[in-house]
Design a protein around this nucleic acid. Sequence first.
DNA 1: CAGTGAGCGAGCTTCCGCTTGACTT
Length: 765
Amino acid sequence: MIENLVIVESPAKAKTIEKFLGKDFRVVSSFGHIRDLSKKNLGIDIEKGFVPDYEVPKDKAKVVAELRKAASEAKNIWIASDEDREGEAIAWHLIKVLDLDVQLTKRIVFHEITKDAISEAIKSPRTVDMNLVNSQQARRILDRLVGFEISPVLWKKVQPSLSAGRVQSVAVRLIVEREREVFSFKSESSFRVTAVFLTGKDDGKQAELRAEASKKFPTEEEAVKYLELCREAVFKINTITVKPGTRSPAPPFTTSTLQQEAYRKLGFSVSQTMAVAQRLYEGGKITYMRTDSTNLSKLALAKSHEVIVSEYGDKYSKTRQFKTKSKGAQEAHEAIRPAYPDKQSITGSQQEKMLYELIWKRTIASQMADAQVERTSISIELNNSAVGFNATGEVVVFDGFLRVYSESYDSENGDDERYVIPPVKKGMLLNYDKITATERFTSPPPRYTEASLVKKLEELGIGRPSTYAPTISTIQNRGYVAREDRPGEKRKVRSVLLDDNKITQASKTEVAGKEKSKLFPKDIGMIVNDFLMENFSEIVDYNFTADVEEQFDEIAIGKLKWTGMLEKFYSPFHKTVQNTLEKKDKKTGIRVLGKHPETGETVSVKMGRYGPVVQIGDSTNEDKPKFASLLKNQLIENLTLDEALLLFRLPRSLGIHEDDEMVVGIGKFGPYVRFRNKFYSLKKGTDDPYIVTMERALEIISEKDLNEKQKVINDFGEIRILNGRYGPYITFEKKNFRIPKGTDPAVLTKEDCLKIIGNNSKSKG
DNA sequence: CAGTGAGCGAGCTTCCGCTTGACTT
C-alpha cells in the first residue's frame, strides 16, 4: 500500500514532481485525456439531451489499466491535472474510469512546478468543479457535432474524405481569402527620392547625411523635374529635433510566439519547433512547451534577476510580469522558459541548442531594462521647392535588453536598420553628393507562412497551443492548402540619378513576388471554403469561436446550462445540414472560360474525379468531350481560356523513332519524354515541351540511359551495388547501406557486402 | 511515378484537445 498517489497529465512532469514530494508520494501520469466520445457514429445521444457516449480509446487501454492498479494500491488519491477546462475534465474522467469517490478524491492544481508551489497546493485540495467539466463537455460535443455533421455533407456534395471543423475551416478560409486579395491586387509604382548630402568641412572632414524627399512622385517625368530643381537648389538644414525614446522587451515565449520566432530566426517549421521543444522539455531543460501564458514563476524571476546582475550588472535588471493578452487564454502553465535560467547553453543536438538559446535569450531579455534611444529628425529645405528632405536617425544610448535579444518581424523590407546621423547644426548648408529617384512598387498583403497563420489564429482565439501544429498538418493533408515556393517574376525598375550636375535615367530588372515556403490554397480548398461560406457561414465566421467561448465561460461559472446551450446551437444548425443535403447541387467550382476559337465548343474548367480538369465540349454533342488536367500551379479560379487551350497541345507525338513512337507531355513531376514505356524528364529551364524536337529528345534519352548503365556497379542478384546521388551504396531487401570510406565499390564481393549489411543492421537495431 | 473523365454500389472517410511514443525514410 502506498500512502499517496498523485496523477498528473504529463510523464515528464510526474518525474519532476515526484522528486519534490518525497517517499510518501507516488506520482503517475494519465498521458492527457483517457476517455473520449465513441469513435464510431456520432457518440452523442441527441434525443436524450446530448448524452455523450464515452469510451477509452484503444491506445489508452494500457495506461488506464496501470492507473487502475496504482489507484487500488493507494490510500489517498490526488488528481493534479492542469487548471483549465480540459484539465478539469481529465480529472472527472479519471474519477469515473477509475471508480473513485468524488468526495474523497483530492483535486489539486499546481500553478508552477516548484517545491513551494507544490507543497502549497497539497495543503488546499478541493473537489472536482462540475461546472468547469460541463463547459468542457459542451466544447467537446459542439466540435463533434460540427465536424461529424458537416464533413459527410462535403463527402456527398464535393468529394469523399474531406473534412470541416470549427478550427480547420477558418484556417483554410484565411488562406483562401488572402490568396484572392493577392490575386486581385494591382501594384502601383511611384518614385522615391533619396539623397546623400555632404556636410560642411569645418575641420577638413566631410560626413555623409542620408535623407529622403518628403514626397513621392507618381511619374518618372515628375521625378526628373524635381531632380532638375535639386540640381540648382541650395540645401539648408531647417530643423533638428532630438527626442528620447525607449524600447521594451517582448514577453517570454508562449507556444505561438515560440513557433513564430523559431520560424523567423531559425527557419524551423511549426511542427519541427514543437518536436525539438518536446525533447528539451523531456530532458528537463525547459518548462512545458504547450502554453498560452506569459507568466513566469517567482523562482524564475529571482533566478533571472541573479543571472542578469552577475552577467551585465544591476542597471540591466528590471523584473517584469507580463499580462497574457491572447483571447481565450487559459493559463494553466507558465511561459516557456529555461528550467534553469543560469544555464545559458546546453548540450544536445544542434537544433536543441539553437532553440534553447532562443528561449534563454527571450526569457532573460524579458527581465531586463528598457533600451534608451535618441531619435533625431532633421528637415532640409530647398530654396526653390516646397518639397524638402527629411533624415531620421537613431542612436542607442543605453542598450538594455537589446544586449541579449531583439524580436524579429515579418515585414519584408528590412528598412529598420538603425542609422546614425552625423553631427550637424541648424542653418548648415549642404551640398549633394548624389540624389536618386527610384521606382517603388506597392506590394500585395503577404501570404501566410505556417507561423504567421498560427499568429492569426491565436489573435482570433481559434485553436489551442496543443493544436496549432496538428491543425496546420490537417489542412495540408486534406489537400486544402500546400506549402510552396514561387520563383517570382522579373520586372523593370526605373531610376533617375543626379550626380555631378548630370541627370541620367536608367533601369534594371528585379524579381518580384518570389515566395518561399508560403501557404497557398489548392482548388479543393477553395471549393470547400466557398461551399462552407454559402451554406455554413456561421461556422466559418471569424467570431464563431469567440462567441461560443463566451458561452462556455458562462457554463463554467454556472450561469448557463450546457445542454441548453447545445440545444440552442444544434436545432438551427441541424436544419441547415439537412436543407443543404436535400437542396444543394454538387459543387465542382465549374467556370466557363469561353468558346473554342475553331470549333465553337464550350471550354470549361472544374474539379473532376481525379483533380482539376479542363473540358472542351459536352456530352450533348455527337463528339465526346475532351479533357486535360491542370498543371501544378494552376488554379481553377484564375485559369484563362488561352492557358486552358494550351493544355490540349500536350501530350504530343514527336514522331516515330526506330519503329516506336516518342511522346512529350507534362506529368506530376514536370515535362517528360516517353519512349518505349520509359520516362525521361526534360531539363528545367532549357527544354520547353511545346517546342522540343525529336533530335533533342534523343539526346536526353541517351544521356539518361548512359547514367542508368553507370548506376549499376555490380549485381549479385538480391544484393546490388549502385551509384546514387550521395555516392555508391549497397541495396538489399529494399534497404540501403553505406559503403565505408576508402573502399572501392567495384572490388567488393557478395560476402563483403553481407558483412557491411550485417554491421549496419546491428548498430541500428 | 508520368492516366484517368462509363456507371454502379459497398464500405470507408470526419471533429478538437490533452498527452507521448511507434512507426518508416
